[in-house]
Design a protein around this nucleic acid. Sequence first.
DNA 1: AGATATTGCAATCAACTGGTTGCCATAACG
DNA 2: CGTTATGGCAACCAGTTGATTGCAATATCT
Lengths: 109, 109
Amino acid sequence: MPADPEAIAEQVFIALADPSRRAILGALAEHGPATATDLADRLPITRQAIAKHLGLLAEAGLVLAKPGERRRVRYHLQSAPMQVAQQFLAALARDWDDRLAALKDILGP
Amino acid sequence: MPADPEAIAEQVFIALADPSRRAILGALAEHGPATATDLADRLPITRQAIAKHLGLLAEAGLVLAKPGERRRVRYHLQSAPMQVAQQFLAALARDWDDRLAALKDILGP
DNA sequence: AGATATTGCAATCAACTGGTTGCCATAACG
DNA sequence: CGTTATGGCAACCAGTTGATTGCAATATCT
């Protein structure tokens, strides 16, 4: 399991780049942990499509699958990877601005 | 031009989800503004592929095309959209944590 | 004018993606 | 025991994507 921040951030970016995935995450945030079939009721896509997305989200660490009582698997949000991605973004933006300022110092008076 | 933060963030996520695109941005950050052919020398992909990526990056606002002297078009970094995306991420993470805490308050002692 | 370099556009291609349908294995409940 | 729900594959399909090659247009230098 590589804790490489860039790898984690990349997976978060991929996950958050898709509207359906954001909708799934939004539903989980709004109504709490849910199963794939629950989400299929709320969202306009099939359970299998949702299951695929949940697989990807779990891979990215944004969601955790918890086996429940009636053979149901409930998915819980995990915000940790998003914070990693956020810090990655912040570092990138800061780096860019620093280098741009440095260039300006060299070229301009 | 929609200033919708989510739309901007989505484009940033899409842009940053691709390694080649991150490499292009990295090269621009490291060596300053450059043309597509310049970048094609540094990176292991063709100029046309780079041009396509630059188009997408420009669409996302992460890069600005500045027509230069010898018909050359130099691309400059723009960090503003990244800061929007970063704040979008921060807001999401905060929202999740708030709701999770609220659920915990309801369910647990 | 001719040679060289640089950009833009189009076609093409393999791989990936988001999504659907269908089927099978369980497990709960009447 | 039969029915009903739930979840896990697997196949398949259309659209997108990352990347390539080829070529035309324009500009620069000798």
